[in-house]
């Protein structure tokens, strides 16, 4: 009996396997193998990972959810800030190194649903990021510019003040590809 069962099994198994495989393949067209996705990259504000996180930690930063970032990377980011600008005291926003890193180390882009959306326009601070915002000059100024933005003048603007193609007035707003 046992041998009959095993011979039946052995003759049917390839067929069963083939049917299962076909079913799985067919199913895959609608529902891929696993319904789960694992995070590979993330960003909130521009250039945070690229500037403040060490090469060895960049993937780990990308895979850390924002609410856990400050605890995991705050001290590393402060070291990086003082590494690129050992003379950092306070910046144009009046933030000292701990306060500035306190803002940056939770890498989400703040946005306001009430009124103007801009990264920084001299008045509004972190109410969004518009396509034309010169975010690099803002960040260079906050890192190198000192309390009134005038320190290290050669390092606080890249003198590229806008995009190479005009944006559209209507959706989807971004310019046609080159």
């Amino acid at each position: 009996m046992k041998s009959l069962r095993s011979s039946l099994l052995s003759s049917f198994l390839p067929l069963v396997a083939a049917v299962l495989c076909l079913a799985a393949c067919k199913k895959d067209q609608h529902f891929p193998q696993s319904p789960y996705f694992d995070q590979a990259d993330q960003m909130g504000r521009p250039a945070i990972n690229t500037v403040f996180i060490k090469a060895a930690d960049k993937d780990r930063f990308n895979q850390t959810t924002p609410s856990l970032m400050a605890a995991a990377f705050g001290s590393e980011m402060k070291s990086s800030l003082l590494g690129v600008n050992p003379g950092f005291t306070t910046n144009l926003l009046g933030l000292n190194a701990d306060q500035f890193i306190g803002v940056l180390s939770t890498d989400v882009l703040n946005a306001s649903t009430k009124g103007k959306t801009t990264f920084y326009d001299g008045t509004n601070v972190l109410t969004g990021r518009a396509l034309g915002d010169d975010v690099i000059d803002v960040e260079l100024t906050l890192v190198f510019g000192g309390p009134d933005g005038s320190a290290n003048p050669g390092l606080t603007s890249d003198h590229v003040n806008g995009n190479d193609a005009p944006f559209l007035a209507d959706f989807p707003y971004l310019a046609q590809p080159h």
Binding site: P46, A47, D59, L109, T117, L131
Partner: peptide, 26 residues
């Protein structure tokens, strides 16, 4: 490479997962 988020980390560089930028505006 220092950019917005272009090619920011080894695991995503050159991959379809490599984010370059996020914008949120009115």
């Amino acid at each position: 490479v220092y950019a917005a988020d272009h090619m920011d980390a080894p695991a995503v560089k050159g991959q379809t997962t490599d984010i370059t930028d996020l914008y949120v505006f009115q």
